[in-house]
Nucleic acid binder design. Sequence first.
DNA 1: TCGCAAAATGTATGCGCTTACACTCGCTGA
DNA 2: TCAGCGAGTGTAAGCGCATACATTTTGCGA
Lengths: 365, 365
Amino acid sequence: MSKAATVYDVADRAGVSIATVSRVLRSPDAVRPATRERVLDAVTALGYVPSGSARGLAERRTGVLGLYFPGFDAADEAPALDALSAETAPPFTVVHGDADDGDHATMLFLDEVLRGAELEAWKQGFVLMVGVGRDDPDRSIVRDMAGRVDGLMVLASSVPDDVLAGLARRIPVVVLSGPPRGDDYDHVLVGNAEAMAELTRHVLAQVGDGPLAFLAGPADSPDGAQRWEGFATAVADAGIPLDAVSVVRGDFTRASGRRAGEELLRAVVPSALIAANDQMALGAMDALRAAGVRVPEDTLVTGFDGIEAAVLSTPPLTTIRQPMIELGRAAVQVLARRLERPDSAPIVARLPVRILLRQSSQRPS
Amino acid sequence: MSKAATVYDVADRAGVSIATVSRVLRSPDAVRPATRERVLDAVTALGYVPSGSARGLAERRTGVLGLYFPGFDAADEAPALDALSAETAPPFTVVHGDADDGDHATMLFLDEVLRGAELEAWKQGFVLMVGVGRDDPDRSIVRDMAGRVDGLMVLASSVPDDVLAGLARRIPVVVLSGPPRGDDYDHVLVGNAEAMAELTRHVLAQVGDGPLAFLAGPADSPDGAQRWEGFATAVADAGIPLDAVSVVRGDFTRASGRRAGEELLRAVVPSALIAANDQMALGAMDALRAAGVRVPEDTLVTGFDGIEAAVLSTPPLTTIRQPMIELGRAAVQVLARRLERPDSAPIVARLPVRILLRQSSQRPS
DNA sequence: TCGCAAAATGTATGCGCTTACACTCGCTGA
DNA sequence: TCAGCGAGTGTAAGCGCATACATTTTGCGA
């Protein structure tokens, strides 16, 4: 790590000017093969790696795209870890039984978005920088990132409107999966409401006007709202009055789904139970099973998200899978396009959702 | 996006020199409150965001850490996606049944490492840049990253030795979870072998010298090798000759585990079956169940990885969970330490693994 | 052999910021 | 009253690279 070589060092060693060194790296055929060889030899000999900062400054573009996520509260309360003094720790610990991991779900989705973004960024020749939103008054990660990247992708509502507007004055911004708002931004949307409506129709087609139940998410969840909306649309379209539907609200956890299921059963056994996410649907199925209600024979159940546990449950849970990987990829594509055509009209890309029909929603014939 | 304001613009508007602007941003109390106000006003008015490149160049450090992963082959063959022309696509598609997602597992682990790294990077005031290794002859992402970051974390064997050595001359490098090799690098290790040995002892304590089976991974997998090693150590220590163990090799998939299980059963019903990963263990349990062999009454089974399906299986599968989040966090800590003390001796952090004892390995009393 | 266009290389400037150093004040203590 | 001082601010020199433009070299035809 001896002081990092620069173009000057390479130029010296190869007996050329720095311009030639730069050219060898940027447009190799602009320099005579013999010279090129000399330079490349010097490069490897010195272990030269061009400074991204200097490059970025001179080129006026960094080749980096930023992806900004809302924070996972859970992670912030992570226990302190001191790897540096862990030398004396035992190489393993034994755990009997298992604590429940809790709200893993949304994190997994974000991971997929990230993977998609990384993949596409690579294809387009960009590098990816990631940031997670945490409520830090003075040190703002988004601003920080905005100064380092050519374009920014933000998950809906992870950045306050005014801040976002400020950043958009400097670099292109694309908003992921949130409703178009301030709207000079580019957007990538997912048709959640439409898919939920379709799934609801699928269920209604089987249960006719039997008693219907909806297991809603927290009142302040935008996702939850969208899903309710799709459901409500389909129900209304079918000519069923919305107040004929039993609506119970949970908090997206399996436990809350279980409680909701028990609550529902005290009144009536619904012909179909549509949940705003998989965890709650699974919890409700627990409650149904405990009460001796069979799924799907007596009650149809559907979820939303497509978590792994949904395919492993008995019966397997019908659900809706958002194209998270594609979401990430699409965001990068949109951003790349925007960068090459800064003045074109705002782009809105809309991605198809996958409805996974499984046993829990198929009444046996 | 009107041409991005610079320090000069801000200085002009505030009626000060650029040095003062810089000072307001870097060390606010070095400037008189009144002046500071004027500058800050100008900053917000212009939507000024400092250029990371210029800053990095002047400061000779970027404040960015790089995390480099081995590539997921699966992702590379991802179908083309053209989000920009998707306007006409249907908002959803319906899928009956479900394709198996395949080797999700390792990706999930990497996601966790990433989360850990991001969390810790934030705590330490860094931003994170991620890169995925893909075999691209000319365009090398690692080099690219190396030029943009203050330090680099690489997953074991995702970077050829010679390349890594070159990069290490420029910036600090820490290697994650791989055996110490070239070794001037800092390392973060996980005691997989030790944990596997301990788990094996736990099993041996119950089955005595009953017939033992080991379900190995592919011959070329370093992970698989480590796990075998731990197992072999414990077996040898118990005075059991290694050739008394039935060893069957799989490829880490559930299907291969199932085949291996069937193969084993043709010879003998083992008292315990220790698998090199969860997928194969689950596959083997499928085979055992199909053959009417009860777990854990007749045969104890253990896995490795701690995937979600392992806790959902019947019976729940005993397994070993690597501390992936901590791995990421530790890597950042090590790197941060290295950056502030460039000349201290190579750091080796060793993280404890968690052994999750569940029903599949507990002979009922 | 010489002349000239094209190819190859060198020179010099600027990208936007940090920071060492120089400078200007308004005060303090002698 | 004035030297001396420190706080506050300005000036200017890079940081390492890309690149427009100037200069040299090469290749080729005459």
